[in-house]
Design a protein around this nucleic acid. Structure first.
Lengths: 353, 353
DNA sequence: CTGTTAGCGCATTCAC
DNA sequence: GTGAATGCGCTAACAG
């Protein structure tokens, strides 16, 4: 009501809110003497404008130090040029390889990657999916095939391609690039039995939300039941803690205490197996004569240990790259030839068995 | 002009372009019987609206399965709630730890992380900086303190906090969380000399854009010159290839061929040192009697090798967390007490020396 | 505590 | 090949 002291207030008060007062496309257009549409076209497809116009625009971009605002672009075009990636943890080199493969393929195509990690808890996964969905990515990449109903629902409703990975399911949300963890573990057991081992013990870190680890255990149990019907399978697990070699050492101790008759320890990960293998050397336990040891993942270290670690090789980088290719095809409006890609696995028999 | 078959066309033709026809805030507002503004407020600060209104809005959100569109939010508020992280490579667990620390702190505050990797090339770094700047992140995190002039310029002009890391410089772009690589390497050399080693050889992978590796070499050379004035320092390097244990094995071979008198090999990374150490065991070279070996980074494996690997421990996770805290403070409009944080390093003397 | 209005920066549609 | 008008979905500013 009252006229305050801030001077005359005409009907249309300026409501400019841009804090940084960044250079916009309009500034470039002004500098180049063209309309913003022409600048927009020139940036997205240089051949769509005249060569001389292009020249002027490019000069203007350089002089004004213009940096395109993708948020505005996203809003106007309904394409964010981003992909959301959800992994259990970043500090496991094996998932890092997958993410590297993913970004290696996506970045050259102009897509940026949003990365989030769940720490193997489904609550965090759901929160992350919800939050990332708010960014309106053009695609999702997620490790695992087991999600809360709500998370799966959000992923389905996002209306963009979704790649699940590192596991297998007959009915993925959308696309799948993975392999069978149980089958891989069965291959390990089959190998050990073929080598003459008879008293196998499974040892692993099985966090509540780590379905891959559970699948590996299941593979072990199935194979064990097949080879030794009626026999009680030996299983030693940890439910929490960091996935480090020290955990492998502790698991080895527990195996030796609880099941001293064990002649082969099947670890759920190379990290654990490596810790155990090195500990055996320190303890004077001969591998594989006194005890055989197997891992999972074929980490860099596996081939360099003495003896070499028998393990399952997973094409982790390939998973990321293949997922990226599927996403790209779908994001570009094409169909994919196969919605489910099995990258398989490979048993690498080395000295530890 | 002509009346087409789609019914009466008033002057203002609808230009709705939303492809997915996603649920918007207006849908929620309608369902809850309030204005969009009230919904917006309720979502950002639930206490800013009446309890009964909040109740209705929350119900409406659930029923409509509304997922907030951050791109629109970003455009309107000029805050993207994202942070861009630029690292040389993802598949090195040591940087992965840093990113994990970064996201661990940022995610609970509602920030998402954009991740890009440069593969140790400055051209890719510049392209990445430019592209990420277009996303208008509220902050930047970047490994290293050496950038192209153009990249540094973009970072400065972005008008948001920037944290450089994993190195040291007296004049950072903005904020710095790092340590002195040369000083760390000098500590290694001092340690070796104190233990009686006199014929040291540096061995490392030095990619063109890896300034941290160069700094470590410089630290070695400086310390070597200090301890052995006039003596020619021994240096063996690789300029390319993946950073894997096999590279350490190859470097060891080259050291033994080119400088057989070497009594201690100073590796630029634990990965290389581990490969060499395991190879020594296979070759029957006694460590540390015949040859001492040191690493850098204190990877998980260092403590578990036999003998344990003497190395430099870097608080890599802390770097990420501290960087995130600095960014948060600045993104929330507060000042930071110190723009430069030295996380230091720690020499861990183990059996390999 | 709630509603109205305008605008964030760009891409799409259409006309020339 | 280029320009003008319009809207993407949300929030800042202001009024009540």
């Amino acid at each position: 009501m009252s006229e305050n002291g801030r001077g005359p207030a005409p009907k249309a008060v300026s409501r400019r809110r841009s804090a940084t007062r960044a250079v916009t496309m309009a500034d470039v257009a002004r500098a180049a003497g063209v309309s913003t549409q022409t600048v927009s076209r020139a940036l997205r497809d240089p051949r769509s404008v005249g060569p001389e116009t292009l020249e002027r625009i490019e000069t203007a971009v350089r002089e004004t130090r213009y940096v395109q605002n993708y948020a505005a672009s996203h809003l106007a075009s309904n394409r964010s040029m981003t992909v959301a990636a959800i992994i259990p943890t970043i500090s496991t080199s094996i998932f890092a390889e997958t993410i590297q493969g993913l970004t290696d393929v996506l970045l050259p195509e102009g897509y940026q990657v949003f990365l989030g990690h769940t720490d193997y808890t489904s609550a965090r996964e759901e929160a992350l999916v919800r939050s990332l969905a708010g960014r309106r990515p053009d695609g999702f990449f997620i490790i695992g095939t087991r999600h809360t109903q709500e998370a799966a629902e959000i992923l389905k409703r996002a209306g963009v391609p979704v790649v699940e990975s590192w596991s297998w399911t007959p009915r993925p949300i959308d696309l799948l690039v993975g392999f069978s963890n149980p089958a891989a573990m069965m291959a390990v057991v089959d190998h050990l039995v073929a080598r003459g081992y008879r008293r196998l013990t499974f040892a692993g870190m099985i966090k509540p939300g780590d379905h891959r680890a559970k699948e590996r255990l299941k593979g072990f149990l199935d194979a064990h039941g097949r080879h030794f019907p009626g026999a009680e399978p030996r299983v030693v697990t940890m439910a929490s803690g960091p996935m480090v070699m020290e955990a492998g050492v502790e698991l080895l101790d527990r195996v030796r205490a609880a099941h001293p008759e064990t002649d082969a320890v099947v670890f759920a990960s190379d990290v654990l197996a490596s810790g155990a293998l090195l500990k055996c050397a320190a303890l004077g336990i001969r591998v594989p004569q006194d005890l055989a040891i197997t891992g999972f993942g074929n980490y860099d270290i596996a081939a360099h240990l003495v003896p070499g670690l028998t393990t399952i090789a997973i094409a982790s980088r390939t998973i990321g790259m293949e997922a990226a290719r599927l996403l790209l095809r779908r994001m570009q409006g094409q169909e994919v030839e196969a919605k489910m890609v099995d990258v398989g696995f490979q048993l690498l028999a080395r000295g530890s068995t």
